[in-house]
Amino acid sequence: MKTSKTIFLFFVPGLVLYSIFFLYPTVSALFYSFTDWDGFSDAFAFIGFDNFERAFTGDSIFRKTIGNNLKFMLVVVVFQTIVALAFAMILIKNTKTTVFLRALYFFPTILSSVSVAFIWAFVYDPSLGILNQLLEGIGLGFIAQNWLGNANIAIYSLAITQVWFHAGQMLIVFVAGLQAIPQEMYEVAKIEGASKWQTFRSVTWPLLAPSATIVVAYTTIQSFKAFDLVFAMTGGGPNNTTEIIATYIYDIAFRNYQFGYASAISVIFMIIIAIITFLQFKALRSDRVSY
């Protein structure tokens, strides 16, 4: 069947906007990454790979930032995946209670990052906060401290907030994955006398692999993009210990006016995300199960 040429008109409005406000800035990020542009003056010079060299050899804060981002990512991925999976397994059936609980756990996802940041600023508040009061209440007052002000643990405090924020959403992904596993598989396992752990290892886990890949990949990318939360909760402090790549780009560009250098970091950031996305894609391909 022949499609009339007017079909191309359907692409026009979207393509125009997408080109101006997305493709053009993406390409210019690449372009500016080789310059020393300050963002405002008309003049700038091409400085080759200097910005990239600076990022990898001369900039100790950038190295710290990568480290922070990895710590944040690791804690979020591990905790979020475990919490989501464990609770998905309890809430797999659709009853009134489970549907209600899933909706409750999901609830934080609909809040804005700024709201979540304020809520958790109060949870972590050293004198008024829920957490310290709770710890004192149960006789663990010696653990109580300034959760966001202590340079050694602030990044982990942020990571826990991120888990609170999004674990409920990942739980739903796991529930969908679990519900797709045919019941007969469990019946066979039962007949053959498999233990709970054996059933999990040889039935649930392999068949759940696609959902697990989605959760891990999504959570990983999300933890690189957690700009809003970090920006609103700590602004990268204390002493750059909670600075992640995204907030660092903002700082270099809009506080230090080094647009060229910020663009170079953006390009590195883009490459990191591309690699993760590619790995996710590959993993999903190879994990494809049939039953």
Partner: peptide, 14 residues
Amino acid sequence: MVPAQVIMVPLYSL
């Protein structure tokens, strides 16, 4: 695949 923070610098000048 491109996070918003990657294009924020050139987008701002645009």
